[in-house]
Amino acid sequence: MDAIILQTLNGLDKGSAYALIALGLTLIFGTLGVVNFAHGALFMIGAFCAVTVQRILTLSVITLDPNKTDFLGNPAKIKTPYVEKFFGPEIGAGIIDWSVPLAILFAIPVMIAIGFLMERVLIRHFYHRPHADQILVTFGLAIVLQEVVKYFYGANPVPTPAPAAFAGAIDFGVLIGFDPNQIVYPYWRLIYFLFSIVVIGGVFSFLRFTTFGMVVRAGMADRETVGLLGININKRFTIMFGIAAAVAGLAGVMYAPINSPNFHMGMDFLVLSFVVVVVGGMGSLPGAVLAGFMLGILESYASLNEIKAIIPGIDQIIIYLVAIIILLTRPRGLLGRKGVMEE
């Protein structure tokens, strides 16, 4: 029982990342009709926004300490971050400690700008080209972005810790009447789940309750009619591309403390996210979210030792297995609408 609760929590956490990335993918696909293989790279860039903010906050003045020596016997270089110089060591250290949450503020404009640029400079030229061309160009873009990040940050993962207040784990089991250590779950992963709920809720409310969102939804349903009504739908779709990039970026920022960011982390999520989108139904936003959490939880259950003892290796194939079953029984995916991706 405790194992199942634990893996459910875990699945919700994994599902959060899948859902956020798949949500952005679906937003782009639903509005612009583009299959964006660079979406994983946007997630990765988000994580590196956290790294960048951490780097900026720890920019340091270097002073030489004649009393200490470095490994070559020269006077040691002592680094003091500027923020500690300006705000005093305690407040300064506190600001550095909170670099990941602060990175959210940094990431939103940066990611929207990157999304905007991507759409205006490159992707809009591919709207009327076949999906295969779109996939090739966005996949190529993903590789370019990856190598650019590698050039500046190296290939090694960069540790980006969460604030000390959220380090460690909560003994969840004790709260609901289990023995200690039965259900222990990290604080930051719980926060990640809550954060994803907020972001998903935000995107849905934005589309649901604002005029802008209403126009976008109308455009997703019938682009030509909205155009005929004199509304510049392309401009709004470009903005949606920026928002989708920001969603992927935020997912990346908050993911940075979970696993140290590296330049190829986007690719690890990309394929899974496509499976999520297909299972959820191409073009369906609720489908993407539902499928994200569902596949996350299934993947976690499949890695239970008891289940792996019956079917070895099931944890590695479960997602694809489910995808095959769903596509065979419901070719449009869980919540897919008629007419999307169909002639």
Binding site: D2, L6, Q7, N181, S300, L304
Partner: peptide
């Protein structure tokens, strides 16, 4: 699996 990136589902059962 060598391609694993998140080990939470393998680590979750360890403490209990």
């Amino acid at each position: 699996p060598l391609a694993s990136t998140d080990f939470s589902s393998y680590l979750a059962p360890v403490l209990s």
